[in-house]
């Protein structure tokens, strides 16, 4: 993949201010909203998988799944954002990301294409954004006709360290 030649993205999810023109993001939809995760943080994109639920786990955790012999904890991004469970009957997809030496699988509604985001289109979070969203959003990209919210994986998964 040519992606590896692209400039590294800071782990905060904020696009670094580099000389290059933009960064690549894997895009996804959650409840109609477009989100993006820096491509270098993404390991895998998975079709629906069999997920084993884990009783007594934090509510955000949907369970565990077997990713080629590795057990990966699955997090429901909808729950993290305080959104209701999906009810359109369509199958969810998921994205495997790394966070602190461990992989996590994030369930989203749908995974889109990889897009290059020009830096000049980046804006910090609007201060009026819902607290839950502000906690996990690493800024917004202005695109033609729509906005892409950067999903900050580390902040999204910060509850992991709180739980441990």
């Amino acid at each position: 993949m040519t992606m590896s030649q692209l400039p590294a993205v800071a782990s905060t999810g904020r696009p670094p201010i580099l000389a290059s023109e933009g960064s690549d993001y894997v895009t996804m939809f959650i409840a109609g909203q477009l989100f993006g995760i820096p491509v270098l943080q993404v390991h895998d994109v998975l079709s629906p998988q069999k997920i084993t639920r884990v009783p007594l786990a934090p509510p955000q955790i949907a369970g565990s799944l077997n990713l080629r012999g590795r057990i990966v904890t699955t997090v429901d991004v909808r729950t993290c954002l305080g959104l209701p469970p999906r009810d359109d009957g369509k199958k969810s997809m998921s994205i495997v990301v790394d966070c602190g030496n461990e992989s996590f699988n994030l369930i989203v509604d749908q995974v889109g294409e990889v897009m290059i985001m020009p830096h000049h289109q980046y804006e910090p979070n609007p201060p009026t954004l819902d607290q839950r969203w502000r906690d996990v959003a690493g800024g917004v990209f202005r695109m033609d006709g729509r906005l892409m919210v950067v999903l900050d994986v580390n902040r999204l998964l910060s509850f992991v360290n709180d739980a441990a």
Binding site: K50, T52, V54, P55, L56, A57, P58, I61, G63, S64, L65, N66, G69, I71, V72, T73, V75, G100, E102, F104, L157, F159, V160, N161, A163, A164
Partner: peptide, 27 residues
Amino acid sequence: VKPVSRALRHITLFSGNTILGDGSVVM
């Protein structure tokens, strides 16, 4: 026996997790 994720380590009911012969994860 595989260690559980950090996110689940506080649940004392489980000592680990594993993958069974049919490929599914069990606690």
